[in-house]
Every structure is written in structure tokens, then in C-alpha cells.
Design a protein around this nucleic acid. Structure first.
Length: 265
DNA sequence: CTCAGTGTTCAGTG
DNA sequence: TCACTGAACACTGA
């Protein structure tokens, strides 16, 4: 699930259930998704009794700003998410962490595949991993000139650069493919070789894809029907884009890439 | 039964 | 330093 729009949905869910509330319970079995030597008891000690002032997101990372450090920082990996539900509802399957608040509602992080991560940070923005992130396309998209300048420093394929979280924070496999498709750019092109016009188009399509997906809280059924997204994993052989174009599958930057050669140059 | 997957990290290589 | 490859992580569903 989790690229920027899915994580933003998690932020909205967490804000709704947790902002201004006090954490009264922490359920978390010992699990490798707890990093930096966190144990169930240290996590409980850090969180119980704390008030949640605000919920923040940057790229694919999400954290609760508490009334006292350290603050819990979450990454959803491939299959993590947030769910909120009232006291008494069953705990979701694959729940790794569950917080209970003073109004009786709970916030859980299920993560079947366990690629998610939970950390504690004193100054989240000033410490890794957040301090290593590039710009967040929703919060701070650079100017066209600055965007192109960043691209010109990179020789790697443009798709690999889009996936690099130290370049842009929050872009994942499907957003990179969608933005390149809409911009009409071959994913294998060296980033430094994009013209000013191409860089400008790509900047706009990245922003458009992220903003559009976020505006519908990442409800896939509400993504525009013209998006490659709906066709990319359909059938590998003979797949067609919504516009009837042939879709090819190749590997770029170590990831399966769906693209439309007749449209992307 | 086999394989790929909306992600990250690390070791090894050039 | 940069960049690429492959493996590892762990589990589901086609």
C-alpha cells in the first residue's frame, strides 16, 4: 500500500483519532519491526501517559509529536497501514502496535509482511532517517529550475532517481511509473539528459499524481480512468493502457517497470 | 507449488 | 563517490 498518498491517509486517520488525546494503553508484542533496541516495555514507557500534540508525515514516514520526547516514528514498508476503531472492536490481523486513547478509541498498525518499522526519535526532523530525505512533493515541491538542477546532478536512469528517497521523499514504484507515463519520458533515460521542457513536464506530473491520489485518500477506484495505474498489473502479456497503447514490462532501478514505449521517449 | 510484489538496506563490484 | 546487482527480510495471493 504505502507510497506517499497511502501514508498521508494514515496521517489523516491518526490525526482524527489521536490528536489532542492521551495514550492510556500500548499493546505491542516483541517484533523485529521495532528498531534501535526498542522493546515492548521501553515503547510502553515512552508512550503511556503522553498526549499527542500533532501527527506529521514526511515522505513515507509518519510520526506522533508527543508532549515529551521521544516521539514514535512509523514506516509502513510494503504492507503496513493505520487503522482506527473503538474500544471493544477486535484487534486487526497482523497488528504490530496498538495504542489506546483516553476517549476509548484505538489506533493500530497492522503489517502482514513485517517490512514496516517503528523507531523512537528525540528530534525526528533532525535525525536520520528523516534528515536524509529529499523534498516531499506534497509539502515542498522545488521550483522548475531547482527541480531541473537536482536532475542534472544525477546520471542514473530517471526512474531510479525518482525512487531515491534522498532525491524526493515519498515516490514509490507505481507513482514513478505513472508520472513518467504521463510526462511521456522513457524510464531508462539518464536524469541529467532531460531537457528543460521534459524536466518541467515531469515535475508537473509528479505533483499531479501525488496531489490527485492524496485528494481521494488513495482510494484506487477514484483515480482517473486515464491513469496507467489501473492497467499496470493486469496481465503481463498483451496489456493495454487505458488509451489502448501497448504496455511493456522491464526492470529499471531494480524494480519492475510498466511503461508505454509508443508514448515514452 | 512457484513466483512476484505499492520498500529498504547492505554487501560486493566496477 | 557514484551507481548497479543481487540478496535478504516475511508473507500473501494469483
Amino acid at each position: 500500500m504505502p507510497e506517499l498518498p497511502e501514508v498521508e491517509r494514515g496521517r489523516v486517520i491518526a490525526t482524527t483519532v489521536a490528536r489532542g488525546r492521551t495514550i492510556v494503553g500500548v499493546h505491542c508484542p516483541a517484533d523485529p519491526i521495532l528498531l534501535d533496541g526498542i522493546t515492548p516495555s521501553t515503547l510502553r514507557a515512552a508512550l503511556r501517559g503522553r498526549r499527542v500534540k500533532e501527527v506529521h508525515r514526511r515522505g513515507k514516514h509518519l510520526w506522533l509529536e508527543l508532549d515529551r520526547a521521544p516521539h514514535p516514528l512509523f514506516h509502513f514498508g510494503m504492507t503496513g497501514s493505520f487503522q482506527a476503531y473503538p474500544d471493544g472492536s477486535p484487534r486487526p490481523r497482523y497488528c504490530r502496535v496498538e495504542l489506546t486513547f483516553d476517549h476509548g478509541w484505538r489506533l493500530a498498525m497492522p503489517d502482514p509482511r513485517r517490512f514496516g518499522r517503528v523507531r523512537l526519535r528525540r528530534d525526528p526532523m533532525d535525525e536520520p532517517p528523516l534528515s536524509e530525505l529529499g523534498f516531499d512533493p506534497l509539502l515542498e515541491m522545488p521550483s522548475p529550475a531547482a527541480f531541473r538542477a537536482l536532475l542534472q546532478k544525477r546520471r542514473a536512469p530517471i526512474k531510479a532517481v525518482l525512487l531515491d528517497q534522498s532525491f524526493a521523499a515519498g515516490i514509490g514504484n507505481w507513482i514513478a511509473d505513472e508520472a513518467l507515463y504521463q510526462a511521456g519520458i522513457d524510464p531508462r533515460r539518464p536524469a541529467e539528459g532531460l531537457s528543460r521542457q521534459e524536466a518541467g513536464r515531469l515535475r508537473r506530473t509528479v505533483r499531479n499524481v501525488v496531489e490527485t491520489a492524496t485528494a481521494v485518500l488513495s482510494d484506487h477506484d477514484r483515480f482517473p480512468r486515464t491513469w496507467l495505474f489501473h492497467a499496470r498489473w493486469g496481465k503481463k502479456q498483451g496489456a493495454r493502457s487505458p488509451r489502448g497503447e501497448a504496455i511493456e514490462h522491464i526492470v529499471v532501478g531494480g524494480r519492475t517497470t510498466a511503461w508505454v514505449p509508443s508514448r515514452q521517449r
